[in-house]
């Protein structure tokens, strides 16, 4: 295993806010890492596990609401809330997976049932009293690291860096571990995997729980960073699509795909907004670039790097 790439990436990420000190640049770094985290969460289920989902916002929202409600109603520290939300995300992931896979759902049918769960959660949080309904939940301002509300953005930056590093670490582990190998077998041919004696149901539930937990961490981070959540923002289809997008554009089923995808899409998103004034123009460019990337790099942006490496290897 080559440790040079992750080590180099980590050094760059650690140094970034020390070089680019402006809050805009640090906020940009936070956004890149944040989308890389939830993209990696999606990628672990959709890429490594081969279980495509259109409704990953269900885990994201679960995490955001779990820690926020624990904090507001029971006075928990958001740091314990972070751990609790990972647990809640894993639980919801395992439940949805167990239910769907027990009844033999696959492919697009599974993708759409996750969407249905996300919608059901959105509507429920909208209707229930203890989730604040459509009004959403506002966390009171209390700036303190103990309260997961850093006075400076750099605190948030290193927190999300740690979470994202963990998610990438898990992806690396999946590539090397027996669990990952079993998932790869299921992804390529589920019937064959079963014939080889793999308990496909168990493995698929496990990977969904793992993915759900990571995604929920992203949800808690989001709630702490913006201090306000509502059902449409955290359970909405937009979030589900954003996760799948960074992962697919970067390269599904690869370790660094979500990070690369997030970096590029956040950059393109910010840049197209900055260079255009006319209504709609920024997203016309953004969408067109999306199509072009897929047209020229059908396996995602990681292709770009692979080509480079292959050339180097040949030379």
């Amino acid at each position: 295993m080559n440790w040079k790439i992750p080590a180099a990436l980590l050094v760059v990420a650690l140094a970034y806010p020390l070089v680019f000190r402006g809050n805009f640049a640090i906020n940009f770094g936070v956004l890149v890492l944040f989308f890389a985290l939830i993209g990696q969460a999606w990628n672990i289920a959709g890429g490594f596990g081969g279980q495509l989902s259109f409704g990953h916002a269900v885990f994201f929202g679960t995490g955001a609401y779990c820690s926020t409600i624990l904090q507001l109603k029971l006075g928990w520290s958001p740091w314990s809330g972070l751990a609790a939300s990972a647990g809640a995300g894993a639980l919801v992931g395992a439940l949805i997976a167990a239910l769907s896979f027990r009844f033999g759902l696959r492919g697009s049918y599974f993708a759409l049932i996750t969407l249905a769960f996300a919608e059901a959660f959105r509507i429920l949080t909208n209707a229930l009293e203890f989730t604040g309904g459509g009004v959403g939940l506002l966390l009171p301002l209390k700036r303190s690291a103990l309260n997961f509300q850093f006075a400076e953005r750099i605190g948030f930056y290193y927190t999300i860096l740690a979470l994202t590093a963990i998610s990438i670490g898990i992806a690396i582990w999946l590539q090397r571990s027996r669990f990952g190998a079993r998932l790869a077998a299921i992804r390529e041919n589920e019937d064959a995997a079963r014939a080889l004696g793999i308990d496909t149901f168990r493995e698929k539930v496990k990977v969904m729980a793992l993915s759900g937990a990571l995604c929920a961490l992203g949800g808690t981070f989001y709630a702490q960073y913006y201090l306000y959540i509502d059902p449409a923002v955290v359970f909405g289809v937009d979030k589900s699509v954003e996760m799948l997008l960074v992962s697919m554009i970067g390269g599904t089923g690869t370790v660094y795909g979500p990070l690369i995808g997030s970096l590029l899409l956040t950059l393109v998103g910010e840049y197209t907004r900055a260079i255009t004034d006319a209504q709609g123009l920024s997203l016309i460019i953004y969408g067109s670039l999306l199509i072009l990337i897929i047209g020229f790099l059908p396996n995602g942006l990681v292709d770009l790097f692979k080509l480079r490496w292959r050339r180097k290897a040949r030379a």
């Binding site: 402006g22 809050n23 940009f28 956004l31």
Partner: peptide, 21 residues
């Protein structure tokens, strides 16, 4: 300074920071 918050909290904050700079 013309900004677009896209009706998304994360974009709104990013625009605020960008304008601050």
């Amino acid at each position: 300074l013309l900004g677009d918050n896209q009706a998304k909290p994360e974009v709104g904050v990013s625009v605020v920071e960008q304008m601050q700079e």
